[in-house]
């Protein structure tokens, strides 16, 4: 069943159009990775899905409803979670306060129980619950950013370069968590530069080049395709 349907969207920053008629879809039970060279429009696509950028043409449908023109906070309310690549935590807020903000759209009752559930998924955050986000390490911040986006149990989670800047071991942890999150029922779109690990946990992959969809295939086939590996995965 299709969860997200993007139909030929054109989007960008002011007069600078970055995406030129990109279409894609995502099913309820999928993890999809988007790869492509620098400045191919991967992050722009996520920002457009989330509502930070409004497409000049095209449609975005989520759970069957037209969400093309919804604001980011409205997108969050319909069940889309987003973890940006940079600045993805609230530095002056403690871990618990950040999770509280992640649950902003939820009713207050049941909040403590939900925070405990999230701590079960991210035990490192339980230990740091009273620490400010600014005091966390890079890996812990990434965990907090994902935990925050998961508070409402979104149907769709958008992850922009979740492993960027992390140590190799921490990267492995992050991708394990992404798989756990997927098993809990969220469909996921991942944008990654270093896409090997991401493709290993994904069902399908889209390749964006110069703001257009260049290729679309099951993730395992991409990993076996020598031509694509050479062109987009660094050989």
């Amino acid at each position: 069943m299709v969860l997200l349907e993007i139909k030929s969207i054109y989007s960008g920053y002011g007069d600078m159009e970055i995406l030129h008629g990109v279409s894609m879809e995502l099913h309820h039970d999928e993890i999809v990775t988007i790869i492509g060279p620098n400045a191919s429009g991967k992050s722009t696509l996520l920002k457009t899905i989330m509502g930070y950028l409004i497409p000049t043409k095209g449609k975005i449908r989520f759970n069957g409803a037209d969400v093309t023109h919804l604001r980011p906070d409205e997108k969050a309310r319909v069940g889309i979670g987003y973890v940006p690549q940079l600045e993805n935590v609230f530095p002056p807020l403690t871990v618990t306060e950040s999770l509280d903000m992640g649950a902003y759209t939820m009713p207050r009752h049941g909040l403590k129980e939900r925070i405990e559930e999230i701590f079960d998924l991210f035990p490192v955050l339980r230990v740091k619950r009273k620490e400010k986000a600014s005091a966390l390490s890079g890996g812990q911040r990434q965990m907090l950013a994902m935990a925050q986006a998961l508070m409402t149990g979104p149907n769709l989670l958008l992850l922009d370069e979740p492993s960027a800047g992390l140590a190799p071991n921490t990267r492995i942890d992050v991708f394990k968590k992404i798989q756990e999150i997927h098993h809990m029922g969220s469909a996921i779109i991942i944008v990654e530069q270093d896409a090997y690990q991401s493709l290993r946990i994904s069902n399908r992959c889209y390749i964006l080049v110069m703001g257009q969809k260049e290729h679309e295939a099951p993730a395992d086939r991409i990993l076996e395709d020598e031509r694509i590996k050479k062109a987009y995965l660094g050989g």
Partner: peptide, 18 residues
Amino acid sequence: KAMRATSANPALAQACGI
């Protein structure tokens, strides 16, 4: 808390539904 979150990171605050 939403005020403090918005002050610290308005774009992320929006992604939280604020």
